[in-house]
C-alpha cells in the first residue's frame, strides 16, 4: 500500500507546488486609429448610413450583433480637431467600435469592408455594401489621412 500512498502524495505535492505561468511583456502593437475627422465627415455618413449598418437587429448598440455596435449619434457632431476625449460618448464609442475592424497595414483587408461584402459568407444578411468601389476608396483614404 505504501507505493500507492507515495504516488498520491507525489501527485499532491506536484499539485500544490505547481508554479505559475509568466505573463510576459505587453504587446507593443499600436492601435489602428485612423483619422477621426474623416470618420465624422465621410466614413459615418458615406459608409455606415447608406449601407444601413446601424439598423435595429444589425449593428445597433442596443440590439445588434457582432463587435461593430453603432450608437444613436447625438448632435452636433464633433468639430474637426476636437480631442477624442472631448467627443460626445455616442460618437466616441461608435468610432472606437469601428476602428477595431480596420487594418491600417492593409485597409482593403479590413473586416469592416470584407465582412459586409459577403467575403467568406460571414455576414448573415449576405453582401450589403451597395457601392464596393467607393467603399474601398473610403477605407483607403481613411487610413491614409493624418
Amino acid at each position: 500500500m505504501r507505493w500507492a500512498a507515495l504516488l498520491l502524495c507525489t501527485t499532491a505535492l506536484c499539485a500544490t507546488a505547481a508554479c505559475t505561468i509568466a505573463t510576459g511583456a505587453p504587446p507593443d502593437a499600436a492601435p489602428c486609429a485612423p483619422s477621426r475627422d474623416f470618420f465624422v465627415s465621410d466614413i459615418y455618413p458615406r459608409y455606415f448610413v447608406p449601407n444601413q449598418c446601424g439598423s435595429s437587429g444589425c449593428h445597433s448598440f442596443d440590439d445588434g450583433h457582432g463587435v461593430l455596435r453603432l450608437r444613436t449619434l447625438q448632435t452636433p457632431a464633433p468639430t474637426p480637431g476636437l480631442p477624442l476625449e472631448a467627443w460626445d460618448p455616442s460618437w466616441r464609442e461608435t468610432y472606437l467600435s469601428a476602428i477595431h475592424l480596420v487594418r491600417c497595414d492593409a485597409p482593403l483587408e479590413s473586416r469592416l469592408l470584407t465582412v459586409p461584402e459577403g467575403l467568406g459568407n460571414l455576414h448573415p444578411p449576405g453582401p450589403v455594401v451597395l457601392d464596393r468601389a467607393t467603399a474601398a476608396t473610403l477605407l483607403e483614404t481613411w487610413v491614409a489621412r493624418p
Binding site: 507593443d28 502593437a29 489602428c32 463587435v67 473586416r111 467568406g120 459568407n121 460571414l122 448573415p124
Partner: peptide
C-alpha cells in the same frame, strides 16, 4: 500573425469546419 490586442472575435459559428478560408 496579429498582436493579441488586435485579434478579433468570432461572431458566429456559421461556416465552421467547412473549409471556409476566412475561418
Amino acid at each position: 500573425s496579429l498582436a493579441v490586442t488586435l485579434r478579433q472575435p468570432l461572431d458566429r459559428s456559421t461556416g465552421c469546419f467547412s473549409g471556409n478560408p476566412q475561418l
